[in-house]
Design a protein around this nucleic acid. Sequence first.
DNA 1: CTGGGTGCAAAATCTTTGCAGATCC
DNA 2: GGATCTGCAAAGATTTTGCACCCAG
Lengths: 153, 153
Amino acid sequence: MKGPRKLQEMQMPRRRSRQRERILELLRSTEAHPTANWLHGRLRKEFPNLSLGTVYRNIGILIQQGLISRIAFGSTFDHLDANVNPHYHFICERCDSIMDLDVPPDQSLNALPDTSLGFKVSRHEIEFYGLCPKCAKRLDGSAFLSHNRNRSE
Amino acid sequence: MKGPRKLQEMQMPRRRSRQRERILELLRSTEAHPTANWLHGRLRKEFPNLSLGTVYRNIGILIQQGLISRIAFGSTFDHLDANVNPHYHFICERCDSIMDLDVPPDQSLNALPDTSLGFKVSRHEIEFYGLCPKCAKRLDGSAFLSHNRNRSE
DNA sequence: CTGGGTGCAAAATCTTTGCAGATCC
DNA sequence: GGATCTGCAAAGATTTTGCACCCAG
């Protein structure tokens, strides 16, 4: 290995790049919630040689810096659930496991979006993030740093 | 008391298949929220020639039949958001657009997961589904059938 | 100068699809 | 017997990565 690569997880001093600056500006200027591909197409005009790889790398950096965030729904398949009754989910930030919560969904929350604006709400979903019982126990009293991936494959 | 099934989507007559039955059984028997790949690996023992394509096709059929559902978070990148303040999202079921909601997040909801079980909640997210103002207006009074995709790409 | 950043292309994932042949009803 | 379904493989779609060169500091 050639250096403290892993420390990138913390705020590593970064050099500026015109590309990254524009990606951030663009994201801040739009109401939509763009994809990497959209950004790439949009910025092609200013950077004719801009590569999608660069867009992805910069997205990763911006997320790391807390300047943007990803929206991880409405995307691809991934996980499945045979419990078709409405229910909430808990996602462990340490082991990435997903659990069904035994909490009755609160339909009154559907009234939250301002209907005077014209929203017609049919349902909602909630994901709680934190430590699952198992991980919480394991880390009881100790700082948690390592990130023990445990996703089903 | 079975609620009326959604007849919106054309239901093709289905034949049974041992593979699909086992996929459903397996999904119902596990606490985890498996991926297609996990199912495939797991069922390889019973069906040595089972193909991933078949798994995906059957997942699609089971979802169509309302027997299972997908969990579309915790997955890949896809959409981004430059609004890093906590906020909820609204997803239009017709045009698939994603909107930030101007609703103050209710931190008290973090108390919903049963902490006596050991959950440590740090945050939560909510997605509301339904019709956005634009689509709601367009469909006012008319049945809605067509699905006008509008995802950024 | 130096090491992070970029473009490019290949690789890695994940999901879909065309086709020929097997299977269920 | 005929419409479905399956396995296989190729194609798509999306994201990551290795590498040589470039450029900000």
